[in-house]
């Protein structure tokens, strides 16, 4: 993984932020569309405050930024081009890991059917 121009402390914050599944998911969502903390919190089975804490960790790692729009806090991904590329590649990685998993399931079910047809 490329950690371009990050100090060790910055890198620690980024890796800490990315070590949590919910935070990776939040980042994946705001990379595509900026959205409010309340809209994010509706997408998880956790409280507004809990989601707000996750957003704060991402913010501390400078992976996202927040700005106010009326009464809402809008979360946006901080996008250096390289970081944005890494985040988008992460999403495609997820897609391909899932595809590999589905191929495994398909091959396993085919093998089962073949064994049924030709019992030993």
């Amino acid at each position: 993984m490329v950690v371009d121009g990050l100090s060790e402390a910055e890198a620690d914050r980024v890796f800490h932020a990315m070590a949590d599944k919910t935070r990776r998911d939040i980042l994946a969502r705001v990379v595509l569309h900026e959205q409010s903390v309340s809209s994010l919190s509706r997408q998880y089975e956790m409280s507004f405050a809990a989601v707000q804490k996750h957003v704060a960790v991402l913010e501390h790692a400078e992976l996202v930024g927040k700005h106010r729009q009326g009464r809402e806090q809008i979360v946006r991904a901080n996008t250096s081009t390289l970081r944005r590329a890494v985040e988008l590649l992460d999403s495609y990685e997820q897609l391909w890991v899932q595809r590999a998993k589905q191929i495994t399931e398909l091959l396993t079910s085919e093998k089962g059917e073949a064994d049924d047809r030709h019992p030993l």
Binding site: A85, L88, L89, Q94, L95, K101
Partner: peptide, 19 residues
């Protein structure tokens, strides 16, 4: 890269996160 993901695939993909 973004155009493809925006077509609704994001939802389905986050399911692979456990892996």
């Amino acid at each position: 890269m973004q155009a493809m993901l925006e077509r609704g695939m994001q939802e389905g993909m986050t399911q692979a996160i456990g892996q």
